[in-house]
Amino acid sequence: MLLLGFVGAALCAGEWLSHPATRTIGPPPKDFSAREVRIDTAPAGHVAGWFAPGQRGRGAVLLLHGVRADRTQMLGRARFLNREGYAALLIDLPAHGQSTGDRITFGAREAAGVKAALEFLRRESPGERIAVIGVSLGAAATVLALPSPAPDAVVLESIYPTIEDAVTNRLTTVLGPAGAVLAGPLLWQLPLRAGVSTDDLRPIERIARLGAPALIASGAQDRHTTWAETERLFNAAAGPKEIWRVEGAGHVDLHAYGPGAYERQVLGFLAKYLRSEG
Protein backbone atom coordinates (compact mmCIF):
# COMPACT_ATOMS: atom_id res chain seq x y z
CA MET A 1 0.00 0.00 0.00
CA LEU A 2 2.84 2.38 0.81
CA LEU A 3 4.40 1.73 -2.60
CA LEU A 4 1.09 2.32 -4.36
CA GLY A 5 0.62 5.56 -2.45
CA PHE A 6 4.12 6.68 -3.43
CA VAL A 7 3.51 5.90 -7.11
CA GLY A 8 0.15 7.63 -7.02
CA ALA A 9 1.65 10.74 -5.45
CA ALA A 10 4.38 10.84 -8.11
CA LEU A 11 1.86 10.51 -10.93
CA CYS A 12 -0.37 13.23 -9.50
CA ALA A 13 2.59 15.55 -9.01
CA GLY A 14 3.79 14.91 -12.57
CA GLU A 15 0.35 15.73 -13.98
CA TRP A 16 0.07 18.95 -11.98
CA LEU A 17 3.57 20.17 -12.81
CA SER A 18 3.18 19.71 -16.57
CA HIS A 19 -0.51 20.63 -16.90
CA PRO A 20 -1.04 23.91 -18.79
CA ALA A 21 -1.42 27.05 -16.68
CA THR A 22 -3.73 28.82 -19.12
CA ARG A 23 -6.11 31.59 -18.11
CA THR A 24 -7.72 34.73 -19.56
CA ILE A 25 -5.52 37.80 -19.15
CA GLY A 26 -7.34 40.46 -21.15
CA PRO A 27 -6.19 43.95 -22.14
CA PRO A 28 -3.31 45.80 -20.49
CA PRO A 29 -4.03 48.07 -17.51
CA LYS A 30 -5.19 51.55 -18.44
CA ASP A 31 -2.08 53.09 -16.89
CA PHE A 32 0.24 51.05 -19.13
CA SER A 33 0.25 52.25 -22.72
CA ALA A 34 0.45 48.98 -24.63
CA ARG A 35 -1.54 46.98 -27.14
CA GLU A 36 -2.50 43.33 -27.20
CA VAL A 37 -0.53 41.16 -29.64
CA ARG A 38 -0.73 37.59 -30.89
CA ILE A 39 2.44 36.08 -32.34
CA ASP A 40 2.34 32.88 -34.39
CA THR A 41 4.66 30.03 -33.42
CA ALA A 42 5.52 26.84 -35.28
CA PRO A 43 3.82 24.63 -36.21
CA ALA A 44 0.35 26.04 -35.55
CA GLY A 45 0.34 27.79 -32.18
CA HIS A 46 0.69 31.32 -30.89
CA VAL A 47 1.84 33.33 -27.90
CA ALA A 48 -0.21 36.22 -26.57
CA GLY A 49 1.17 39.38 -25.04
CA TRP A 50 1.29 43.13 -24.66
CA PHE A 51 3.62 45.45 -26.59
CA ALA A 52 4.53 48.98 -25.48
CA PRO A 53 6.57 51.03 -27.99
CA GLY A 54 9.60 52.94 -26.75
CA GLN A 55 11.71 55.92 -27.71
CA ARG A 56 13.93 55.71 -30.75
CA GLY A 57 17.46 54.60 -29.98
CA ARG A 58 16.67 53.46 -26.43
CA GLY A 59 16.38 49.73 -27.10
CA ALA A 60 13.70 47.08 -26.66
CA VAL A 61 13.23 44.38 -24.02
CA LEU A 62 11.43 41.02 -24.09
CA LEU A 63 10.08 40.05 -20.65
CA LEU A 64 9.52 36.39 -19.75
CA HIS A 65 7.74 35.15 -16.61
CA GLY A 66 8.28 32.12 -14.38
CA VAL A 67 6.55 28.74 -14.34
CA ARG A 68 2.74 28.71 -13.91
CA ALA A 69 2.69 32.51 -14.04
CA ASP A 70 1.88 34.82 -16.99
CA ARG A 71 2.82 38.19 -18.47
CA THR A 72 1.33 40.11 -15.53
CA GLN A 73 4.26 38.91 -13.38
CA MET A 74 6.51 41.13 -15.53
CA LEU A 75 4.31 44.22 -15.52
CA GLY A 76 6.31 46.04 -12.85
CA ARG A 77 9.49 45.58 -14.85
CA ALA A 78 7.78 46.65 -18.07
CA ARG A 79 6.52 49.84 -16.43
CA PHE A 80 9.91 51.08 -15.25
CA LEU A 81 11.63 50.05 -18.47
CA ASN A 82 9.04 51.85 -20.57
CA ARG A 83 9.37 54.96 -18.40
CA GLU A 84 13.08 54.90 -19.26
CA GLY A 85 12.24 54.80 -22.97
CA TYR A 86 12.65 51.09 -23.68
CA ALA A 87 10.08 49.31 -25.82
CA ALA A 88 8.66 46.38 -23.83
CA LEU A 89 7.12 43.11 -24.98
CA LEU A 90 5.51 40.90 -22.33
CA ILE A 91 4.30 37.47 -23.45
CA ASP A 92 2.64 34.44 -21.95
CA LEU A 93 5.02 31.57 -22.59
CA PRO A 94 3.55 28.51 -24.36
CA ALA A 95 1.02 26.62 -22.20
CA HIS A 96 0.65 29.68 -19.95
CA GLY A 97 -1.84 32.53 -19.84
CA GLN A 98 -3.55 32.99 -23.20
CA SER A 99 -0.87 31.21 -25.23
CA THR A 100 -1.38 27.80 -26.81
CA GLY A 101 0.35 24.63 -25.63
CA ASP A 102 -0.72 21.27 -24.25
CA ARG A 103 2.06 20.83 -21.67
CA ILE A 104 4.52 22.84 -19.63
CA THR A 105 7.97 21.59 -20.66
CA PHE A 106 10.22 23.65 -18.33
CA GLY A 107 11.86 25.60 -21.14
CA ALA A 108 12.11 23.09 -24.01
CA ARG A 109 9.02 23.95 -26.06
CA GLU A 110 8.73 27.36 -24.44
CA ALA A 111 11.90 28.20 -26.36
CA ALA A 112 9.84 28.43 -29.57
CA GLY A 113 7.80 31.21 -27.99
CA VAL A 114 11.01 33.07 -27.10
CA LYS A 115 12.27 32.87 -30.68
CA ALA A 116 8.96 34.03 -32.16
CA ALA A 117 8.72 36.91 -29.69
CA LEU A 118 12.23 38.09 -30.50
CA GLU A 119 11.44 38.07 -34.22
CA PHE A 120 8.29 40.11 -33.53
CA LEU A 121 10.22 42.59 -31.38
CA ARG A 122 12.81 43.13 -34.09
CA ARG A 123 10.05 43.79 -36.65
CA GLU A 124 8.26 46.24 -34.36
CA SER A 125 11.46 48.00 -33.23
CA PRO A 126 13.65 48.11 -36.37
CA GLY A 127 17.24 49.05 -35.73
CA GLU A 128 16.90 48.81 -31.96
CA ARG A 129 19.17 46.75 -29.76
CA ILE A 130 17.31 43.93 -28.05
CA ALA A 131 17.49 42.47 -24.55
CA VAL A 132 15.71 39.65 -22.75
CA ILE A 133 14.82 39.57 -19.07
CA GLY A 134 13.77 36.07 -18.05
CA VAL A 135 12.66 34.82 -14.65
CA SER A 136 13.20 31.15 -13.74
CA LEU A 137 11.30 29.32 -16.53
CA GLY A 138 11.67 32.38 -18.77
CA ALA A 139 15.41 32.46 -18.19
CA ALA A 140 15.77 28.74 -18.90
CA ALA A 141 13.70 29.02 -22.09
CA THR A 142 15.94 31.86 -23.29
CA VAL A 143 19.12 29.84 -22.84
CA LEU A 144 17.62 26.66 -24.27
CA ALA A 145 16.36 28.59 -27.32
CA LEU A 146 19.87 29.77 -28.30
CA PRO A 147 18.19 32.45 -30.46
CA SER A 148 19.91 33.55 -33.64
CA PRO A 149 20.76 36.34 -33.97
CA ALA A 150 21.57 36.50 -30.29
CA PRO A 151 20.08 39.29 -28.18
CA ASP A 152 22.35 42.22 -27.35
CA ALA A 153 21.99 41.50 -23.63
CA VAL A 154 20.20 39.08 -21.31
CA VAL A 155 19.17 39.20 -17.65
CA LEU A 156 18.73 35.69 -16.27
CA GLU A 157 17.02 35.54 -12.90
CA SER A 158 16.81 32.45 -10.67
CA ILE A 159 17.66 30.10 -13.55
CA TYR A 160 18.13 26.42 -12.83
CA PRO A 161 21.30 24.69 -14.12
CA THR A 162 19.63 21.32 -14.82
CA ILE A 163 16.10 20.00 -14.45
CA GLU A 164 17.43 17.39 -12.01
CA ASP A 165 18.65 20.20 -9.74
CA ALA A 166 15.38 22.10 -10.08
CA VAL A 167 13.11 19.17 -9.23
CA THR A 168 15.25 17.81 -6.41
CA ASN A 169 15.63 21.21 -4.75
CA ARG A 170 11.92 21.94 -4.85
CA LEU A 171 10.90 18.56 -3.50
CA THR A 172 13.43 18.53 -0.68
CA THR A 173 12.36 22.04 0.30
CA VAL A 174 8.80 20.77 0.79
CA LEU A 175 9.33 17.16 1.86
CA GLY A 176 12.81 17.07 3.32
CA PRO A 177 15.15 14.18 2.40
CA ALA A 178 12.20 12.12 1.16
CA GLY A 179 11.82 14.63 -1.68
CA ALA A 180 15.04 13.39 -3.27
CA VAL A 181 13.49 9.92 -3.54
CA LEU A 182 10.41 11.31 -5.29
CA ALA A 183 12.52 13.29 -7.79
CA GLY A 184 13.42 10.23 -9.85
CA PRO A 185 9.84 9.09 -10.56
CA LEU A 186 8.86 12.64 -11.49
CA LEU A 187 11.74 13.01 -13.92
CA TRP A 188 10.98 9.62 -15.50
CA GLN A 189 7.58 11.01 -16.54
CA LEU A 190 9.02 13.86 -18.62
CA PRO A 191 9.21 11.96 -21.94
CA LEU A 192 5.69 10.55 -21.51
CA ARG A 193 3.94 13.70 -20.31
CA ALA A 194 5.92 16.47 -21.96
CA GLY A 195 7.74 14.80 -24.83
CA VAL A 196 11.15 16.00 -23.61
CA SER A 197 14.03 14.35 -21.80
CA THR A 198 16.25 15.53 -18.98
CA ASP A 199 19.00 16.00 -21.58
CA ASP A 200 16.84 18.69 -23.22
CA LEU A 201 16.68 20.66 -19.97
CA ARG A 202 20.25 21.51 -19.06
CA PRO A 203 20.79 25.27 -19.45
CA ILE A 204 24.26 24.99 -17.92
CA GLU A 205 25.38 23.05 -21.00
CA ARG A 206 24.12 25.71 -23.43
CA ILE A 207 24.78 28.99 -21.66
CA ALA A 208 28.31 29.32 -23.07
CA ARG A 209 26.81 29.38 -26.58
CA LEU A 210 24.20 32.03 -25.85
CA GLY A 211 26.35 34.74 -27.45
CA ALA A 212 25.01 37.64 -25.40
CA PRO A 213 26.35 39.67 -22.46
CA ALA A 214 24.63 38.25 -19.38
CA LEU A 215 23.61 39.47 -15.95
CA ILE A 216 22.89 36.39 -13.82
CA ALA A 217 20.95 37.13 -10.63
CA SER A 218 19.57 35.07 -7.77
CA GLY A 219 18.54 35.40 -4.16
CA ALA A 220 21.17 34.53 -1.57
CA GLN A 221 18.58 32.47 0.32
CA ASP A 222 17.00 30.81 -2.73
CA ARG A 223 16.44 27.11 -1.98
CA HIS A 224 14.98 26.34 -5.42
CA THR A 225 18.07 27.59 -7.26
CA THR A 226 20.86 27.73 -4.73
CA TRP A 227 23.61 30.32 -4.79
CA ALA A 228 26.14 27.57 -5.50
CA GLU A 229 24.12 26.62 -8.60
CA THR A 230 23.98 30.25 -9.69
CA GLU A 231 27.77 30.45 -9.41
CA ARG A 232 28.07 27.27 -11.50
CA LEU A 233 25.97 28.86 -14.24
CA PHE A 234 27.98 32.07 -14.07
CA ASN A 235 31.25 30.16 -14.37
CA ALA A 236 29.90 28.25 -17.37
CA ALA A 237 28.75 31.40 -19.19
CA ALA A 238 30.97 33.15 -21.72
CA GLY A 239 31.79 36.80 -21.19
CA PRO A 240 30.99 39.57 -20.91
CA LYS A 241 29.05 38.59 -17.80
CA GLU A 242 28.03 39.90 -14.41
CA ILE A 243 26.62 38.19 -11.34
CA TRP A 244 24.29 39.75 -8.76
CA ARG A 245 23.63 38.20 -5.36
CA VAL A 246 20.43 39.60 -3.84
CA GLU A 247 20.98 39.39 -0.11
CA GLY A 248 18.08 38.09 1.94
CA ALA A 249 15.99 37.04 -1.05
CA GLY A 250 14.67 33.53 -1.63
CA HIS A 251 13.05 32.22 -4.83
CA VAL A 252 10.95 35.34 -5.17
CA ASP A 253 10.24 38.11 -7.65
CA LEU A 254 13.51 40.03 -7.33
CA HIS A 255 11.97 43.27 -8.60
CA ALA A 256 9.13 43.14 -6.10
CA TYR A 257 11.59 42.19 -3.34
CA GLY A 258 13.70 45.33 -3.77
CA PRO A 259 12.48 47.60 -6.58
CA GLY A 260 15.05 50.35 -6.11
CA ALA A 261 18.09 48.07 -6.06
CA TYR A 262 16.70 45.96 -8.90
CA GLU A 263 16.05 48.94 -11.16
CA ARG A 264 19.50 50.44 -10.56
CA GLN A 265 21.21 47.12 -11.26
CA VAL A 266 19.24 46.25 -14.38
CA LEU A 267 19.15 49.73 -15.88
CA GLY A 268 22.90 50.08 -15.41
CA PHE A 269 23.48 46.75 -17.14
CA LEU A 270 21.11 47.42 -20.04
CA ALA A 271 22.55 50.89 -20.63
CA LYS A 272 25.94 49.33 -21.42
CA TYR A 273 24.61 47.24 -24.27
CA LEU A 274 21.33 48.72 -25.56
CA ARG A 275 21.70 52.48 -25.64
CA SER A 276 22.76 53.88 -29.01
CA GLU A 277 25.62 56.34 -28.85
CA GLY A 278 24.59 59.95 -29.20
Rank of each mutant, 00 (worst) to 15 (best):
T226A: 09
R223C: 07
L144K: 09
A108F: 13
T173D: 15
A228I: 06
A139F: 01
L144G: 09
A42M: 13
L175H: 06
A214Y: 07
D92N: 08
V37G: 01
R202V: 11
K241F: 11
A9R: 08
V154G: 07
F6M: 13
L233P: 07
F120P: 05
A271H: 13
P147C: 01
L215C: 11
V114F: 01
S148I: 02
L201G: 12
R193C: 05
H96E: 05
L175M: 14
W188R: 12
W188L: 10
A220K: 06
G14Q: 10
V174N: 06
A131F: 04
P203L: 06
V37H: 01
L11H: 14
L182Q: 07
H96N: 11
L17H: 15
A9E: 07
T198A: 14
A178C: 10
G45W: 01
A228P: 03
P191L: 00
W188Y: 10
Q98I: 00
V114H: 05
F80Q: 09
R129M: 06
I39S: 03
I216Q: 03
Y262G: 00
T173R: 11
G268R: 07
R109C: 11
H255W: 12
E205Y: 11
G8Q: 13
E110N: 06
L270Q: 00
G59R: 01
P27N: 05
Q221F: 09
L11P: 03
T41L: 04
A13W: 04
P240V: 03
F269M: 04
G239E: 07
R232S: 11
G134F: 00
E263C: 04
D31H: 12
A271Y: 02
A183Y: 07
P20T: 14
A117L: 04
A249K: 06
Q55R: 15
G134L: 05
L17A: 13
V135T: 08
G195A: 06
G219V: 03
V196R: 10
D31L: 03
K30W: 01
S218A: 15
A183K: 09
D152R: 02
A21T: 09
L75S: 08
G101W: 00
P43L: 12
I133V: 13
T173A: 15
L4Q: 10
G184M: 06
H19V: 10
E119Q: 14
W16R: 15
E231N: 10
L90P: 00
V167D: 04
V155E: 00
E277Q: 11
Y86W: 09
G250N: 13
A183G: 01
S18C: 15
L93W: 07
A9G: 12
A88W: 09
A212P: 03
A42I: 12
L2I: 15
I133G: 06
V37K: 01
E277N: 08
L93Y: 01
L171G: 05
F51A: 11
F51C: 13
T226N: 07
V67W: 13
C12Q: 15
G268N: 08
R123M: 09
L156A: 09
A183E: 02
E119V: 14
A87P: 08
A88H: 11
Y160T: 08
L270V: 09
A166Y: 11
A220E: 15
R38K: 13
A150R: 12
A60C: 13
L75R: 04
S218R: 04
A131R: 03
A208T: 13
Q98A: 00
L2Q: 14
L118C: 08
V252D: 10
